Amino acid sequence: MTDLLAALLLGIIEGITEFLPISSTGHLLIAERWLGHRSDLFNVAIQAGAILAVVLIYWKRLWGMLLAFIGRDAPADFDPLGVPTPPAQSREYAYKLAAAFAVTAAGGLLVKKLGWMLPDTVQPIAWALVLGGVWMMLAEQLAARRAAREGERTAIAWRTALLVGLAQIVAGVFPGTSRSAATIFVALLAGTTSRAAATEFAFLVGIPTMFAATGYELLATWRDGGMAGEDWSALGVAFLASAVTAFVAVKWLLRFIQGHRFTAFAVYRVLLGAALLLWLPTGQ
């Protein structure tokens, strides 16, 4: 298999799994056993490609928040209901996204400095898949009961935003957890009973998070003199493949959650994690 084809497949895998709550890190690590190990810059860059897809999907939402900062209403067609969001609400939402990102950035730098990171081996990722799947099933039941009592709540509270920021740190420390799963379900358990609203916030907060991570890795690679050793053609192919497939995956997921729960993803995680634990010798 050529290196470009391997990079293309890795980009497709990243694009499909980054926003589905099934752990892109876990799937990439498994795929790299056959397609070849890649640099940290490569892995972060293809994640940025997937995040670019979210920017394209939510560009009206993002532009509306930008307009809010200068006190202007977004056009009516920027809202699916045809009712523009008041600037004050858009500004507050943007501040909450910024707060969640700030928590992640500060905590992420601290975690990296202290070296709090599980090894990128299959066994701990398999356990994270299993335990995360079980947690998703329990969390969805609790969220559904809360929604039945309180009705659908779409608002993102400040506490929810800060907890989502912490959830991103946990997902970074425990490979296989899934950033999207951690952030979506923390938002649901923290009081946002609407799956669509929780998913949207989780996706949007990933934009600054992953772009910042890409910039950090680029700077670190440049300082270490690793730029010359990077296969930029393969990285470019994987970046584009990730962006295109992520666009399709996110569009599909946003339609799917309108009438379905996340249970199928939880079951998939448990089955995949269990298969990995049975298939691989301890420690691999």
Rank of each mutant, 00 (worst) to 15 (best):
A220R: 14
L254E: 01
Q168G: 01
Q123W: 14
H260V: 04
T17Y: 04
A144I: 02
D120I: 00
V103H: 12
E14R: 02
R223F: 02
S233A: 13
N43A: 06
A264E: 03
R261P: 04
L253G: 01
A143M: 06
I70V: 15
G71H: 14
A266C: 12
W127Q: 01
L110A: 13
E32W: 03
A7V: 10
V83M: 07
A94Y: 07
L162V: 06
I12V: 15
Q123G: 03
A202Q: 12
E140F: 01
F185P: 14
L204Q: 07
D40R: 02
G236K: 08
W127P: 00
L29I: 12
L28F: 09
D120M: 02
P21A: 09
L110I: 14
P75Q: 03
Y93M: 15
A98H: 01
A228Y: 00
A148W: 02
H37W: 02
G229T: 09
L254T: 13
A167E: 00
K112C: 03
L131F: 15
L235D: 05
S24L: 05
V44L: 11
Q284N: 04
K96I: 09
I169M: 05
F69N: 05
T245D: 02
T263D: 12
G11P: 08
T160A: 04
T2D: 13
L28S: 08
L67W: 07
A161L: 01
I12G: 08
T104N: 05
I207T: 10
G82T: 00
V270M: 15
W252C: 04
A243E: 02
A167T: 01
I30H: 02
L66G: 14
T221H: 09
R61H: 14
Y268A: 13
A171W: 02
I156V: 07
E200I: 01
G26D: 04
D120Q: 10
T192L: 14
W222H: 05
R195I: 14
W279Y: 14
W59Y: 12
T199W: 13
T263Q: 01
R91M: 06
A68C: 08
P208S: 13
R159S: 07
L162T: 00
A102V: 10
K113I: 04
T192H: 12
G206V: 06
K112S: 07
F42D: 11
L131T: 13
V130F: 00
Y58E: 11
I207N: 06
A220E: 15
G226A: 03
D73K: 06
P75W: 05
M117F: 15
S233H: 03
V250S: 02
L162H: 01
E200W: 01
V237M: 05
S194M: 11
L10E: 06
A144L: 06
K251E: 10
A102E: 04
L188E: 10
E217N: 10
I30K: 03
P21K: 05
F211P: 10
L131M: 09
L272F: 12
A102C: 06
P21R: 00
G108D: 04
S23C: 10
G176N: 00
T199A: 15
P86N: 06
Y93R: 11
G176L: 11
L131C: 13
V111Y: 05
R38L: 09
L163D: 04
